[in-house]
Amino acid sequence: MSSSANEPRSQLDGELHTLRRHLVSMATLVDEQLAHAMNALIQGDVEAGEAVAARDSEVDALELTIDRHCERILALHTPVAADLRMLIMAVKINTDFERIGDHCRNLARYTAPLADFPDMLAATTVPRMADIARDMLRGAEEAFINRDRVKARTVIARDQQVNRLHAENLSALIAQMQQTPEATEALSYLITASKAIERISDHAKNIAQGVVFLVEGNDIRHQRLSDADRSS
Rank of each mutant, 00 (worst) to 15 (best):
74 L>G: 08
20 R>C: 09
36 H>F: 01
121 L>Q: 05
89 M>H: 05
108 A>I: 04
91 V>W: 00
46 V>G: 05
125 T>R: 12
47 E>Y: 01
37 A>S: 12
14 G>N: 15
128 R>N: 02
56 D>A: 04
27 A>C: 01
29 L>Y: 04
35 A>T: 11
111 T>K: 12
55 R>D: 06
73 I>N: 11
86 M>P: 10
99 R>E: 15
125 T>D: 14
111 T>Q: 13
123 A>E: 14
91 V>N: 07
123 A>P: 09
96 D>L: 05
114 L>G: 09
50 E>M: 08
25 S>G: 09
87 L>F: 00
93 I>V: 15
15 E>P: 09
79 P>E: 08
68 R>M: 11
84 L>P: 08
72 R>W: 04
80 V>A: 13
36 H>S: 11
102 D>M: 14
47 E>L: 09
123 A>K: 11
16 L>Q: 13
48 A>R: 14
83 D>Y: 12
125 T>S: 12
60 D>P: 13
114 L>N: 10
34 L>E: 08
37 A>L: 01
11 Q>Y: 07
35 A>R: 04
87 L>M: 07
105 R>T: 09
66 I>G: 05
66 I>H: 04
126 V>N: 06
52 V>K: 09
114 L>D: 10
39 N>Y: 02
9 R>D: 08
34 L>M: 13
37 A>Y: 00
121 L>E: 06
72 R>P: 02
101 G>W: 05
30 V>P: 05
33 Q>S: 10
80 V>M: 12
76 L>E: 13
77 H>K: 05
65 T>I: 12
35 A>Q: 06
104 C>Y: 01
22 H>P: 08
108 A>L: 10
17 H>V: 04
59 V>I: 08
114 L>P: 11
68 R>Y: 06
13 D>L: 10
92 K>R: 14
70 C>L: 02
33 Q>R: 03
29 L>M: 11
109 R>C: 11
118 P>R: 02
124 T>E: 11
61 A>I: 01
79 P>L: 03
117 F>D: 13
108 A>S: 14
90 A>M: 12
49 G>W: 00
37 A>V: 03
42 I>G: 00
92 K>G: 06
17 H>Q: 15
105 R>S: 15
10 S>P: 02
118 P>I: 02
31 D>M: 01
43 Q>L: 10
126 V>P: 07
57 S>Q: 10
24 V>W: 04
91 V>Y: 01
116 D>L: 09
54 A>Y: 06
41 L>C: 06
11 Q>K: 14
72 R>I: 00
67 D>W: 02
48 A>C: 09
